[in-house]
Structures are given as structure tokens and as C-alpha cells.
């Protein structure tokens, strides 16, 4: 299979990746070491592979890697470090919203995108923003609560 080179920004770092011409972005990113991106369906229906593309959450399994030349991508690895967690990462641990953790990166990326554009979302807006991130473990309750909690923290509310 023919390969091509793409130049892109991943988590604010300039990167050059050599990808197969028919490769999915999720596979290209995982091969480049971004293992936090998960895959659960390869058809855009589970959301485990959600990344930000130019600021918007998208299913990286549905994006040809070849199209990603020039993209700015944010993955879960770009949110925070274990010793410096993003408020969303911190909150979801506080509310108990992580069970197996497989869908967590995608969910956090969708939530991150929401809070960037809407710092004070109501519950319906949180649900809508994460409607593409399926979870079988938690029943969503504590994950949604985590987004509310993180939003509060980020706004500086008590």
C-alpha cells in the first residue's frame, strides 16, 4: 500500500507522519504513539476514537489519515498530565465516572470541546455534546456529573 507524508499539529506539537494512503486517522495516530485514542467500532458509532480536529470533536475512525495534512489535532494526551490533570480529568475521577476507562478519553474530548464553547452548559447540553460517546459501564450518571463539576471549577464557582 502506498504511503504518504502528512504534516500536522498534534497537541500543539508539529509532527510529520508517514501514513498508508487508505489508513484511518485513528490507526495512524495510535501507530504514532497516541494510544489514548481507543477504537470500539470503526464506523463512527461508539465515539471511543473521538479527537478534536481543528477544535471540533470528530470520530477519528471516519477520517482518512491522508486528509489530515494541516490539521490541528487534540487527543486525550493533550489534555493534562497525571500530575497536572485537567479539571475534567480530575472531576471524572472525583465523581466516580470512570469504570473500565475505555470510553473515557473520547468522552473527555467531547466534553472538553463543549466547555471551550460553552463554559456553563446545562445538563441537556452536556448530554447532547456527549451523545456520540457510548458507555456501557457507568450509565452516564457520574460522567455527566463530572462535566458539570469541571465546568464549575473552570468558571471558578464555589
Amino acid at each position: 500500500m502506498k504511503t504518504i507524508e502528512i504534516k500536522l499539529k498534534i497537541n500543539n506539537e508539529d509532527k510529520i507522519l508517514r501514513v498508508k494512503i487508505n489508513e484511518r486517522l485513528v490507526d495512524a495516530l495510535r501507530a504514532a504513539g497516541y494510544k489514548g485514542i481507543k477504537k470500539g467500532c470503526y464506523e463512527g458509532s461508539c465515539g471511543a476514537c473521538t479527537v478534536l480536529v481543528n477544535g471540533r470533536p470528530m470520530n477519528s475512525c471516519m477520517i482518512p489519515a491522508a486528509s489530515a495534512d494541516g490539521f490541528e489535532i487534540t487527543t486525550i494526551e493533550g489534555l493534562g498530565e497525571s500530575d497536572n490533570l485537567h479539571p475534567l480529568q480530575e472531576s471524572i475521577l472525583e465523581t466516580g465516572g470512570v469504570q473500565c476507562g475505555y470510553c473515557t478519553p473520547g468522552f473527555l474530548i467531547s466534553s472538553y470541546a463543549l466547555l471551550k464553547s460553552n463554559p456553563d452548559p446545562n445538563m441537556d447540553e452536556i448530554k447532547r455534546a456527549t451523545d456520540g460517546n457510548l458507555c456501557r459501564c457507568t450509565g452516564y450518571v457520574k460522567k455527566l456529573e463530572a462535566v458539570e463539576r469541571a465546568a464549575k471549577k473552570m468558571r471558578g464557582d464555589k
Partner: peptide, 9 residues
């Protein structure tokens, strides 16, 4: 239509 990430695509 579909979901938030898909509506972005």
C-alpha cells in the same frame, strides 16, 4: 442527524 462528532463531519 447522527451524533455530535459525526455532525462535525
Amino acid at each position: 442527524i447522527a451524533s455530535t462528532p459525526l455532525r462535525n463531519m
